[in-house]
């Protein structure tokens, strides 16, 4: 037994002394740690961007307000969530979890805790940073002119106006251009008008003015003739 031990010792030391085995330098490990930290930082930035963009999209499109109009509103909300972006965010979260899991303060706690920690931190940072005004500026910078096609926009514009933004068919955002009993005429941002019918089941958010020039969110399905039967109406005041 002792002989074996000695032999192993000799063999290892001879491999080291002959230069067959070399110690990695401290810089290698420092660089690896720095790259790891950089990776965590960049992934965190991506996560903050994605979470804030999802929240911005929900608010900008009006989808965030849909659950306030009962079960129909809640279905509209669930159907309009940007599921692809949510999946991408979840994938980024998983990669971030893998990257931070090598640190003892992370792996000594259950994964659920670190996932919740990362999610809460990301959401808090998103809410504390002026990310909404940043997204709004980009959104406005890529406002298409009348007649412009989405395909002609640069990728960032297509992302902000197209792919990333919820476009629920049962939600219209626009300005009142005409009003008569039980019917509204709403013009969207491209100037296209739609008729909106109100009935006894239409829930109007308290404090909503429906005068000419007021900007409204109309929740309701559109019939084949293009008329919208509203189940909810809310004024936009931002």
């Amino acid at each position: 037994m002792e002989e074996k031990k000695e032999q192993l010792n000799k063999e290892i030391l001879s491999q080291i002394k002959e230069g067959k085995v070399e110690m990695k330098s401290r810089w290698f490990f420092v660089l690896r740690t720095l790259l790891g930290i950089l990776g965590v930082f960049l992934l965190s930035l991506c996560l903050i961007f994605l979470v804030s963009f999802i929240l911005f999209g929900l608010r900008k499109s009006g989808v965030a307000l849909a659950p306030g109009f009962g079960p129909q509103g809640f279905i509209l909300f669930a159907m309009s969530l940007p599921w692809m972006l949510i999946l991408i965010t979840a994938a980024f979260l998983a990669v971030l979890e893998i990257l931070i899991r090598k640190y003892s303060f992370v792996y000594k706690k259950p994964i659920l805790y670190s996932l919740i920690g990362v999610f809460v931190a990301t959401t808090l940072i998103t809410l504390l940073l002026p990310s909404f005004s940043l997204h709004n500026s980009i959104f406005r910078a890529y406002q298409p002119e009348v007649g412009d096609r989405e395909a002609d926009m640069p990728p960032i514009g297509r992302f902000y106006r197209g792919f990333g933004m919820p476009h629920p068919s049962d939600l219209l955002r626009g300005v009142v251009v005409d009003f008569s009993t039980g019917t509204l005429v709403i013009a969207n941002e491209n100037g296209v008008t739609s008729s909106v019918i109100l009935n006894d089941f239409t829930k109007i958010f308290p404090g909503t003015d429906m005068g000419i020039g007021d900007e409204l969110l109309i929740f309701g399905p559109r019939s084949t003739s293009g008329i919208i039967r509203a189940f909810g109406i809310r004024e936009i005041r931002d």
């Binding site: 192993l8 290892i12 085995v21 110690m23 990695k24 490990f29």
Partner: peptide, 18 residues
């Protein structure tokens, strides 16, 4: 087992600065 043991010590030496 011997090969595995040797590999462990070699890896230990290579990474000892970490």
């Amino acid at each position: 087992a011997e090969d595995l043991l040797q590999d462990i010590f070699i890896k230990t030496y290579i990474n000892i600065k970490s």
